[in-house]
Computed example of a mutant assay.
Amino acid sequence: MKQKIYQALENVFILENKKNIIESGIVKKIDVLKDEIRIHISLYNPTMHIKKKLKKDILKSIKYKNLDTKKICLKIEIKLRRNTDQKISGIKNILAVASGKGGVGKSTIATNIAVSLVKMGFHVGLLDADIYGPSIPLMFNIEEDKIHSSILKKKNNSYVMNPITSYGVKIISLGFFSKSGEAVVWRGPMATKALRQFIHDTDWGPLDFLIVDLPPGTGDIHLSILQDIPLKGIIIVSTPQKISLSDVHRSVAMFRIRSIQVPILGIIENMSFLLENKTKEKQYFFGKNGVKNFSKKMNIFFLGEIPMLQEIREYSDLGVPVVLENDQIRKIFEKITKNIINKLS
C-alpha cells in the first residue's frame, strides 16, 4: 500500500519548482495505520491556498490510482521550513519592524530607530519592504530627481542595486523604481520576487544593522522574509486602542508559530499621549497603558512609549527624521534603541 501511495504522489506537483512532491523532497514520511494514512509534508511556504490545493491534488491522485481509501482518514501535516543557516554577507544583525495594522507609525519609528543607530556610531541599512505602500523615500526626502542611474551598478559581470544614502542610512525601496502616486498592482508572487531581489541583489556593504520595515498584516511578504533572511528579532509597533492591539495580536501569533519562532525583542507604544501646552498634563487620546498591559499579558518586553507631537508629523512630512531636530524625541528614541540593543545581547 505504501509503495502505491508514493507512486500516486509522483503525479502531484509544486508550481514553485515544477517538480513532483516526491522529487522535491517535501514528503518526509508516510504512515499507513489501521484506520488512517498520514502523509507528513514540509513546506517553505504554507499559505492557505497552497495547502488547500495540495490536499486536493493528493486526494485526486490517490483516487485516480484506484487505491481503496474509502475507510481511510488522510492527514497531511504541513510545517514551515526556515533557512536559518542562510546569511547575507557583511550584515551582522537583521531586525524587522512589524505591526498587524497600518497607520500606527511603523515607518516613522523604523526611520528614527535607523537614524538613532547611526548617531550611536553603527553602520545601518533600511529596507522598505512595504511593496504596496512604500513611504520610506518620503521619510528621508529622497525625491525622484535624486534617484538616477547610480541606483544600478555593475559588479562581477552582473548588475546589482546600489542603496541611496540619506542621513547616514543606506536605503532601498520600491519607491525608487515607481513614480509618485503610481499604483503597484501586483499579485503576491510578483511582490515576493521583487522583495527577494531587494534583499539579495543589493550591494549593502558591511552593516551592523539592517532594519526591515514590514507591511501590515501576515501574508506572503512576511513569509518570504522569514524564509529568505536570518532575522535576529522583531520589533512590534502599536497604538494603545483595542482595534490596533487586536491586529497586533495576530502578528505576535504568527511570529510565535512553533515552526517559525522569530524572537520578539519588544513592543513600542506609538501615539501614546498628548501633552497640554500650558499644564504639560498627559492626555491619553487612544486610552491609557493599552500596549503596556498587552505586553504584560503576552510576555513581551515593553520598549517604550512615543507621544503624539506635532513636530513628529511636521518633520516626517518634510522628510527629516525627527530625532535630528527634537531633543525630547531624540532621548526617547535613544532609550528605545538602547533597549533593543540590550535585548539582542
Rank of each mutant, 00 (worst) to 15 (best):
I62M: 15
I72G: 01
N289M: 03
K282V: 04
S178M: 14
N342S: 15
Q227K: 14
I234C: 02
M254W: 13
S158C: 01
V124Y: 13
K297L: 03
K71H: 14
E23C: 05
Y132W: 12
R256T: 14
I41H: 05
N293C: 04
D228K: 00
P215W: 06
R250T: 13
F198T: 02
E143D: 02
A183Y: 04
I88R: 08
K18R: 15
L33C: 13
I221T: 06
K338I: 10
I147A: 03
K63Y: 13
I22H: 06
V169F: 00
N326F: 01
S238H: 02
I257M: 14
L127N: 11
I113G: 11
L67G: 09
G181K: 12
F209H: 14
Y167V: 02
P134K: 11
M48P: 05
D213Y: 03
D85S: 13
D57Q: 10
I72Q: 14
G175V: 03
P230R: 10
G205N: 02
G175I: 03
S251F: 05
E269P: 04
H123D: 14
G125C: 03
G133E: 12
G290P: 04
P215N: 08
D228M: 06
I5P: 01
I257Q: 10
V322P: 08
N342M: 13
R330G: 03
I41M: 09
Q283T: 09
K106E: 01
A8K: 00
L275I: 07
K155V: 04
T47F: 10
L174M: 12
H148K: 07
T218L: 10
N93P: 06
D128H: 02
H249L: 08
L309S: 05
G105H: 09
M1V: 12
I72S: 13
S244Y: 02
S272V: 05
F177M: 07
I199E: 10
D327F: 05
L67R: 05
L33Q: 14
Y167T: 10
L210T: 00
